[in-house]
Simulated scan of single mutants.
Amino acid sequence: MAGRTLPTGLTALAVAYIAATGGAARAADKPPAPTHADVKYGPHPRQVLHFWKAKADAPTPVVVFFHGGSWMKGDRMEVDRRGLLALLDDGVSVVSVEYRLISDARRADVEPPVQWPLEDAARSVQFVRSRAKDWGLDRSRVGVSGVSAGACSALWVALRDDLADPASADPVARESTRVACAAVFDAQTTLDPQLTRAWIPNATYGPHAFGRFGGDPKGAFEGFLKARDELLPAIKRYSPLEWAGAGDPPVFCAYATRIRPAGEAQRDPTHSPVFGVKLKEKLDAVKVPCEVRYPGGPGTGHASARDFLKAVLTATAAPK
């Protein structure tokens, strides 16, 4: 990372993780200014994105990135902190998306609240495709990425059925949401509390996505678990794992912590690599490429998210 000042407060583990997963920072201390900043892709004030155009004579691939923060906070410049603006040097353009948060959905009485951030993820991909001609993008080479909740959003877009509505009066809504690949960091792959608790005994993540708040995180999760049957249709609709199947695009998942033996509490249950391993099991069964990297893991495949995205999106034959 020579030539780049590291953010204060990073632990040695965090530094190693960022480097290993593609966060080797750009040469400049400050990220480049977006080619187009705060572009609106919807009417809500949070429905805006930044676009960075890679220098190229021909239409470029593009990666659409969603920041983390439990769908409750975060900022678009996490795309630079994860090193993905370095893709500009690889001839890949980059988009980083702001989206409506859980709090916005709750104020609007949207149920479940997670509907809004996930629908915004899909809408932003459609919007980017709608700008392909103006922005010099290759519509067939769109990848998605994200961190934590943003990673869940990215996987949901990548794995679910196409949300294009050919009959819509809105030209953006007529665009496809299907992508060529997904490369994510610390992803939750399911929001099903029953599955999560079976995999990770100290899990507490997910109640907020379905409007279940109150008390400590463990207590909120127990309430979420009790309400599972009532919420199951929505849980299935918004969990990436439920959509995984044959014909899906290749996936790369990076995690910061090791896997502890089955049945033991995980060091970071919200971001445990168990989530990625379980997704890989399902995708392996239908022969969809899925790489999962974490400390102590197999270490096969691409070395970083950046390497994976570059390899897939700049391949000689355009992804289908």
Rank of each mutant, 00 (worst) to 15 (best):
G74D: 03
S70C: 09
V277N: 02
P273C: 11
W135F: 01
P273N: 09
V274N: 05
A305T: 10
R139E: 14
F221T: 03
D248H: 11
P295V: 11
K218C: 01
V92A: 07
A151N: 07
L163M: 11
G136Y: 03
G245D: 02
G3L: 07
G3A: 12
I259P: 00
K236G: 00
L313W: 06
P113Y: 13
R178F: 01
E291Q: 15
A173K: 09
P250H: 10
V39L: 13
A169E: 12
D165K: 15
F213K: 08
T35P: 05
G219E: 14
V48G: 02
A122N: 01
K278A: 13
H44C: 03
Y255I: 07
K55S: 13
W156D: 06
D29A: 14
A227D: 15
V95L: 05
L159S: 08
F210K: 06
R160N: 08
P240C: 02
A305C: 15
F51D: 04
L155S: 02
G263D: 06
P113W: 06
V184G: 06
K236A: 10
P249F: 07
E175I: 10
D138G: 00
T300K: 09
D38V: 04
G150E: 05
A311L: 02
F275A: 07
G91S: 09
S168M: 06
P31V: 10
L88E: 02
Y238H: 06
G297H: 14
G3H: 14
T314F: 09
D75H: 07
L195W: 12
M1S: 13
D170V: 09
G42F: 09
V125Q: 03
A254V: 04
H302K: 09
V274H: 00
T314M: 11
E291R: 11
D248A: 15
R106V: 14
V95P: 03
A105W: 05
W52C: 05
I102P: 01
P31N: 03
A182E: 00
M1Y: 11
L87E: 01
T300E: 14
V172K: 12
R267V: 12
R100L: 05
Q115A: 13
A265Y: 09
K55T: 13
A132W: 09
R178E: 08
P117L: 08
Q188L: 14
G3I: 03
V288H: 07
K320F: 06
A33F: 02
L137E: 01
L85S: 01
V15F: 03
A311I: 01
P171C: 07
K280W: 02
A14M: 14
V288P: 08
L88I: 10
A12D: 15
V63R: 01
G23E: 00
I18G: 11
S124N: 00
D104G: 08
I200W: 13
P7C: 10
K133E: 14
A16W: 09
L283G: 10
L118W: 07
V274A: 12
F308K: 07
V114K: 00
T314P: 07
K55V: 11
A254Y: 06
V251D: 09
W116F: 08
G223R: 15
V184M: 10
A198T: 14
P45N: 11
A105R: 01
V179N: 08
P7K: 14
R81F: 12
V144I: 07
A24R: 13
R123K: 10
